[in-house]
């Protein structure tokens, strides 16, 4: 019951943020000099002022801004984001909908990879503070922070794709003969195609998360209850994994939530490099084509995904830490 009330409160708190997101998306698109219609019209030599006026009326661009915003928001709530400017004139939500699963899949996989690899790395580095292992991981973290992800992707393509010819470098599955594969081979094929993109999208998170785990662990290991546990004569393994790690993981849940926008943002880069038909690639092609409804729709959907991701992280935190949901620590 406590949890339900807490959850309801959290959900309510999201409403103003959501409205803020829509206002910012809307104004970004409308404050930019040269409205979207003129961009389309300027390339068309046959465009007369009257036609332009008619087009403006058709898209509702002649109405005052708050009317346009109200109309757009009403559509947004019903997932009606208008139609694309591209020749196919498909609905924006349909375009986004078919691309969301791939982007979410890759981001979830890379998050799992981050947790599975970065947490043990951070714990080992903290337990053996200032050891060779700790120093080597510190250096690697600095390098991973500074390396542009798209460059790492190019190097991996160069080595594993071209030099060794082990892994495919583009698309989600083999183009030739994919239809004739049985289910198992299809999964295997997908897996092979996903290795590089997932790894590339995880690099930044791996570096950051192992660092946070390390410092969070060091923080906990310094506390009194760890000394107590050791003094009781508990084996070091139990002290570290049962007592320290559990407490060290708590703040990490929040950080994982905060890293969601970065992960999703990264999809623009790895999807365009590895030719993966996801939301990031859609965004990129929309920018290239100045496809204004797709741009705006993408921006809002991605921000809402971030918002939901943060809510999930909050729920995880509340599930792990009873103090949150019973309201002893209401704020921060």
């Amino acid at each position: 019951m406590d949890f339900l009330i807490w959850f309801g409160k959290r959900l309510l708190a999201l409403v103003p943020t959501f409205i803020g997101i829509t206002i910012i998306s809307f104004s970004v698109m409308h404050m930019a000099p040269g409205e979207p219609m003129s961009l389309q019209a300027d390339f068309n030599p046959k465009m007369t002022p009257e036609m332009r006026q008619r087009l403006r009326a058709q898209y509702g661009l002649d109405k005052p801004l708050y009317v346009q915003y109200g109309k757009w928001l009403k559509g947004l709530v019903q997932l009606d984001l208008g139609r694309s400017f591209s020749p196919d004139r498909r609905k924006v939500w349909d375009k986004i909908k078919e691309r969301l699963p791939v982007t979410i899949l890759i981001n979830v996989l890379s998050m799992i990879l981050i947790i599975l690899v970065a947490v043990p790395l951070g714990v080992w580095a903290a337990v053996r503070q200032n050891s060779l292992f700790d120093q080597v991981t510190t250096v690697l973290v600095f390098i991973a922070y500074a390396a542009p992800a798209f460059w790492v992707a190019l190097l991996l393509m160069l080595y594993f794709g071209i030099e060794l010819n082990w892994l495919p470098v583009s698309g989600l599955h083999t183009l030739m003969g994919y239809e004739r594969m049985d289910a198992w081979h299809k999964v295997l094929d997908w897996g092979k195609h996903l290795i590089l993109p997932v790894f590339v999208s995880a690099i930044g998170g791996l570096a950051g998360f192992s660092r946070y785990t390390r410092s969070s662990m060091l923080e906990v290991l310094r506390q009194d209850f760890i000394t107590t546990a050791r003094a009781k004569g508990l084996p070091e393994r139990t002290v570290i994994y049962r007592h320290a790690l559990r407490n060290a993981l708590l703040p990490l849940i929040t950080i994982l939530g905060l890293s969601i926008p970065g992960l999703i943002g990264g999809s623009v880069i790895f999807e365009s490099i590895f030719a993966i038909p996801g939301v990031g690639q859609l965004m990129w092609s929309a920018v290239m084509a100045r496809d204004y409804p797709v741009l705006m729709g993408n921006l809002v959907i991605v921000a809402v995904m971030t918002l939901l991701g943060n809510l999930l992280a909050d729920m995880g935190y509340a599930a792990a830490d009873p103090r949150i949901r019973t309201g002893i620590r209401e704020e921060e």
Binding site: P261, V268, V287, L299
Partner: peptide, 15 residues
């Protein structure tokens, strides 16, 4: 902070 910055940047740069 809800907007992945690269998306926001791309949306503005498009215009």
């Amino acid at each position: 902070l809800c907007f992945p910055s690269i998306f926001l940047i791309m949306a503005v740069i498009a215009f």
